[in-house]
């Protein structure tokens, strides 16, 4: 990788003061599990890195009974946090599935949410694709078996973050700190489709940092779960996955939030599935119908039609698992 200078920022203020306004010139380093790979492959060549591991690394209760997770919290600490597991099981289960033990021991929450796409054309130095300022998306006529089944392009990545999907399902907000103060952005507004923002995957500006994830207090009757389908159990990203957050009254679903992962350039909220499930008694049949609704608008590419089926299954099983029902 190209040489860079390094700032060991003692806190948020110092870290912010070290950033700049030009994209990819100065970058934050959390665990480095994504960033160093990008740099070794010359996909980004920052002149300076700013350590953000000394930002808030705690998980704290909020006054309303939710949790506030510092961006410097490592995945392993989130996984081992008893309150987080009890209150937001889907988030913790998804953290548990990330990569490998070594990655979870190093990777941070901030880094996970801001990691860059894994499209193999994007990750290959030789392909100057749209996202890198080139003229073509190579996935369209190329190897697109792991690409998006939702979205109009022009870039067809799937968002790589496990945690992002659970953040949407639980209605999390992100605190973004910048030179002129901090703003709170809903997780759902944070991630951006490529037709809005081709060169980045979210609204974060180069001179801003994501400092906290705030999860609202679980509503009474909230039951939630995640279900992932993976080709390999470790060292890889899921083929498709889903998170279901159901507000239950007995066996009736009062309301639901269903979000799919690895199917679109952003965590993909399945509004139709949520509507299909609301007011229904939870059963294999109602879960299956909701899942069908979830993939209704899918537009698979030349080699990834199989993902529609995988996503559908993931939604069915996430719903059943959330409801405490047997998942076959």
């Amino acid at each position: 990788m190209k040489a860079f200078s390094y700032v060991d920022a003692a806190n948020e203020k110092d870290a912010l003061a070290s950033l700049g306004t030009e994209r990819n010139q100065v970058l934050a380093i959390g665990g480095g599990m994504d960033l160093l790979g990008m740099m070794k492959d010359y996909l980004v060549q920052p002149v300076r890195l700013v350590n953000v591991k000394r930002l808030d690394a705690t998980i704290a209760r909020t006054p309303d009974g939710g949790l506030r997770i510092g961006s410097a919290v490592r995945l392993i600490d989130l996984i081992e946090h008893a309150d987080a597991r009890r209150m937001y099981p889907a988030l913790v289960e998804l953290a548990e599935q990330v990569g490998t033990p070594q990655i979870r021991n190093a990777g941070t929450v901030g880094g996970n949410l801001n990691q860059r796409p894994r499209c193999w054309y994007f990750r290959n130095e030789e392909f100057h694709c749209l996202k890198k300022g080139g003229a073509t998306c190579f996935s369209v006529n190329g190897e697109n078996q792991f690409h998006a089944i939702f979205g109009e392009g022009p870039c067809h990545i799937v968002h790589p973050s496990n945690l992002a999907v659970a953040c949407l399902a639980y209605g999390a907000t992100f605190r973004l700190a910048g030179p002129s103060g901090a703003r709170e952005v809903e997780a759902e507004q944070y991630f951006q489709m490529p037709d809005h923002n081709l060169y980045a995957e979210n609204v974060l500006q180069p001179n801003e940092l994501l400092t906290h994830v705030t999860l609202p207090a679980p509503m009474a009757g909230l039951k939630s779960a995640a279900y992932e389908v993976r080709f390999k159990q470790a060292h890889d990203w899921p083929l498709a996955f889903a998170t279901a957050a159901l507000v239950m009254e007995g066996q009736t679903v009062k309301s639901a939030r269903i979000v799919m992962g690895a199917v679109a350039p952003v965590p993909w909220r399945a509004n139709e599935a949520e509507r299909a499930l609301a007011g229904k008694t939870l059963s294999e049949e109602t879960a299956g119908r909701a899942a069908l609704a979830a993939v209704q608008g899918a537009q698979p590419m030349s080699r990834n039609a199989y993902k529609v089926r995988v996503a559908r299954t993931a939604v069915t099983r996430a719903i059943l698992k959330a409801g405490g029902m047997k998942v076959v």
Binding site: A3, F4, S5, Y6, A10, S18, P179
Partner: peptide, 29 residues
């Protein structure tokens, strides 16, 4: 003793950030 001696750092700095002084950077050497 590597190849990047003399590499210049083009620096976006504290001025833009509107904060006092940015903490010191080390390297790239």
């Amino acid at each position: 003793a590597s190849v990047i001696d003399g590499l210049q750092e083009a620096l976006p700095h504290a001025q833009e950030a509107g904060t006092a002084a940015a903490p010191a950077a080390i390297g790239p050497g």
